[in-house]
Design a protein around this nucleic acid. Structure first.
Lengths: 235, 235
DNA sequence: AGCTTATACCTGTCTAGACAACTGGCCGTG
DNA sequence: CACGGCCAGTTGTCTAGACAGGTATAAGCT
């Protein structure tokens, strides 16, 4: 078993490909280096390159055609399963650019529904952030989040255009469990404007509650435009 | 490339395991033959056995622990994050009464989008059902379903007020896999009326594709009122 | 008894080589 | 020009062997 800092070779190959997709050197439809090419360039065995490409194909990142080659998959319009995965990776894995707009970032007193849902006593302080994640400039997710200060004391100090809230939380404390609730709704005007939705358009809301050390670490309301986002899961 | 009728060895190994799970010889939690055991019993290379077990683990069928062994995962199909439970069970488990109204039940020619999604050739026959599931008389789900006749030849003969389509399909043929797609939308008038939704209300659409014997067995579009239904998942 | 060590077994990974099957293009033939 | 065959490149798979690292158990020592 390789230690974390020197990842397995097949993971290095996967990252080699994924980074080129994220960086735009490999746009959708582009031909990916063949297995033998990877063998030469990365000095690995063909089986290792094969495993990397095969797994990326299984994830839908690549498309392989026997006898022809391996190509970057055309943009999948849908998301991956309901795993705890951040939207930035999801967008980048489609080869698109991810950008964030920070609408609000502050500490707020816990009160009313938010306090009740967070499980903290009313009056205590919560961190609050409201971000808009865009794919190629188009808003794809509004992330409204309340964070338990005990789970990430330096939450407000981060630059959210560089790291996502989820990454910060994961780094601060291991997340044990996540509860998801998925609903369809026609959002209030505030959310609608941020997502640039029409008046009658529906949104998909994923409310994600993450737990760390037995306490609620964060509650995130993730709004997505119903017309441009869908969740997929395979059992 | 092996021809279809003599599957690849690693697929044979996967089937060898899957059949023992399906047959009950390997209940959840049971220890699966180790890689070396499979090498001896099935006369394959260890890499081949390794790939089979690794893929089954990636699918969540097995759980592997380095240094210990490989085991059948606990409750597979019924505990997946996005498991969409039988709506009848779900309603009854809340202590409410479940009732069904059969709006349509017929065989239809496969054409257009439905044919394409089903993977059957245009012109062949599909079974079609349109049901409304109610909780205490209130519509909670519109179930629009296309069924592959090969998966359940006697589909149209059943009394859907007593058994649900899903139960019939499970009984007719073991379901291998299900794909779910979740979307939010403001439904067309036809669905809106069946759900007794207001003009601007959102609906949660779950499209469920089930596979049996490698073929699509059924495609179901499940519409739910956004205001009264939500999907929950724990990871 | 309690602790340490050796050991057998397990998964995880990597390698080098091999053969099969598919694809596209090149080239010669009719 | 049309057709068929050859060929290089690619993916798909399988093998036998190797080493690393984790885990549980048994043996041995204090």
């Amino acid at each position: 078993m390789q230690p974390q800092d020197s990842a397995a070779r097949y993971l290095q190959v996967k990252h080699f490909i994924l980074e080129q997709i994220a960086g735009g050197e490999l746009p959708p439809g582009a031909r990916v280096p063949s297995e033998n090419e990877l063998v030469r360039r990365l000095t690995v065995a063909r089986m290792t390159a094969n495993r990397a490409l095969r797994e990326l194909a299984a994830d839908g990142v690549l498309v392989r055609v026997a006898g022809v080659g391996t190509f970057v998959a055309e943009q999948r319009v849908h998301a991956h399963p309901l795993e705890v995965r951040n939207i930035a990776d999801e967008i980048r894995s489609r080869g698109h650019t991810h950008s964030v707009r920070v609408v609000a970032l502050q500490s707020v007193p816990a009160r009313g529904a938010a306090a009740e849902r967070s499980g903290v006593r009313p009056g205590s302080t919560l961190f609050y952030s409201l971000l808009v994640h865009c794919e190629d400039g188009e808003p794809l997710q509004v992330e409204e989040r309340h964070v338990n200060p005990q789970a990430a004391p330096d939450y407000l100090q981060h630059d959210f255009t560089r790291t996502t809230p989820h990454e910060i939380l994961v780094r601060a404390a291991p997340l044990q469990r996540a509860e998801h609730t998925v609903r369809a709704l026609v959002p209030e005007a505030r959310i609608r404007r941020l997502l640039r939705l029409g008046a009658g358009e529906a949104a998909l809301l994923i409310r994600r509650r993450t737990y760390s050390k037995g306490r609620i670490a964060s509650i995130a309301d993730l709004y997505h435009p119903g017309s441009r986002y869908e969740l997929t899961a395979t059992i």
